[in-house]
């Protein structure tokens, strides 16, 4: 059993998908997925990871995010984009992407990677979350492994 942390919901590793009322929001419908843990991971190794957290394969990660939130045609703000690892995977299907990251070196790398893939709808800014979440309006704000 994993303690999910959102709304005090506990999720098990086995069972069926259930739709149930949230503990946090009376009258609001919340989808709590009680299936066996979603396998997010074509395997990556240290060389492909940005740091010790060992990020999942960005393609798989994009797939799971898109399944639950939908990114197609949306205006997205990504907070803590790192080197654009994930950004570059979903930018192609999003409408407009603004990605922020405090580390300037990472931003330079993200821009270079975007150029090399001819991605034109993603803008990268070296900004911390504390001051960088501005602009918009956006349809989706994405925090992926960003503990800001």
């Amino acid at each position: 059993m994993y303690k999910d942390g959102a709304g005090g919901v506990l999720t098990h590793l086995e069972g069926d998908v259930q739709i149930e009322g949230s503990e946090a929001e009376v009258g609001q419908r919340t989808r709590v997925d009680r299936r066996r843990g979603e396998p997010l991971g074509k395997i990556s190794d240290r060389g492909e990871n940005d740091d010790a957290r060992g990020y999942p394969d960005p393609l798989d990660e994009t797939r799971i995010i898109a399944r639950h939130a939908g990114l197609a045609g949306r205006d997205v703000l990504e907070v803590g984009c790192g080197n654009g690892r994930l950004t570059l995977e979903y930018a192609g299907r999003a409408g407009r992407v603004v990605a922020i990251e405090p580390n300037r070196e990472m931003i330079r790398e993200a821009r270079a990677r975007a150029r090399s893939r001819a991605i034109e709808n993603a803008l990268f800014f070296a900004r911390p979350a504390q001051t960088g979440i501005r602009g918009g309006p956006f349809d989706v704000v994405l925090f992926s492994w960003s503990l800001c």
Binding site: G7, E25, R31, D33, H68, A69
Partner: peptide, 10 residues
């Protein structure tokens, strides 16, 4: 409001 809460492994 909480719309989705899920988990997984990698």
């Amino acid at each position: 409001s909480l719309l989705v809460s899920t988990h997984g492994t990698h």
